[in-house]
Simulated scan of single mutants.
Amino acid sequence: MNIPIKLQDQTAARTLVGKVALVTGSTSGIGLGIARALAAAGADVVLNGLGAPEEIGRTREQIVADFGVGASYSPADMSKPKSIAEMIAATVAQAGRLDILVNNAGIQHVAPLEQFPVEKWDQILAINLSSAFHTTRLALPAMRQNGFGRVINIASAHALVGSPFKAAYVAAKHGIVGLTKVTALETAEEGITCNAICPGYVYTPLVEAQIDGQAKAHGISRDQVIRDVLLAQQPNKRFATVEEIGSLAVFLSTDAAASITGIALPVDGGWTAH
Rank of each mutant, 00 (worst) to 15 (best):
E61N: 14
I56L: 05
L98S: 09
M78F: 00
R97Y: 07
D77N: 03
G96Y: 15
A111L: 06
E86L: 01
E61I: 08
V102C: 10
Q94G: 04
Q62H: 08
I63V: 14
P112I: 07
N103D: 11
I56N: 07
V64L: 09
Q94L: 10
D77G: 00
I107P: 02
Q94C: 07
R97K: 15
I100M: 10
I88W: 02
P81D: 00
R97V: 15
V110H: 13
K80T: 01
V102E: 08
Q62L: 14
E61D: 15
G106V: 07
Y73G: 02
G70S: 11
L98D: 09
Q62W: 04
V69E: 08
V102S: 02
K80M: 00
V64S: 07
G70I: 10
D99I: 04
T91W: 07
P81I: 03
V110T: 15
G106R: 10
V102I: 15
T91D: 05
I88E: 01
V92G: 03
D66E: 15
S79V: 01
A95K: 15
Q108H: 15
A71G: 04
F67H: 08
D77V: 00
V110S: 13
V69I: 14
S83Y: 00
S79M: 00
I100A: 11
H109T: 06
E86Q: 05
V69G: 11
A90W: 04
L98Q: 05
V110R: 13
A111E: 14
I88K: 02
A90E: 06
T59N: 05
Y73K: 04
N104A: 12
Q62M: 11
G96V: 11
Q62I: 06
V110K: 11
I56A: 08
A76L: 01
N103C: 15
I107A: 04
F67A: 10
K80E: 00
S74D: 04
A111R: 10
A93V: 04
I88D: 01
G57R: 14
I107W: 04
A95S: 12
P75W: 02
I63P: 02
P112H: 09
M87H: 02
G57I: 14
Q94N: 13
I107Y: 06
V102W: 11
K82H: 00
N104M: 13
T59Y: 06
I88Q: 01
S79E: 03
G70M: 13
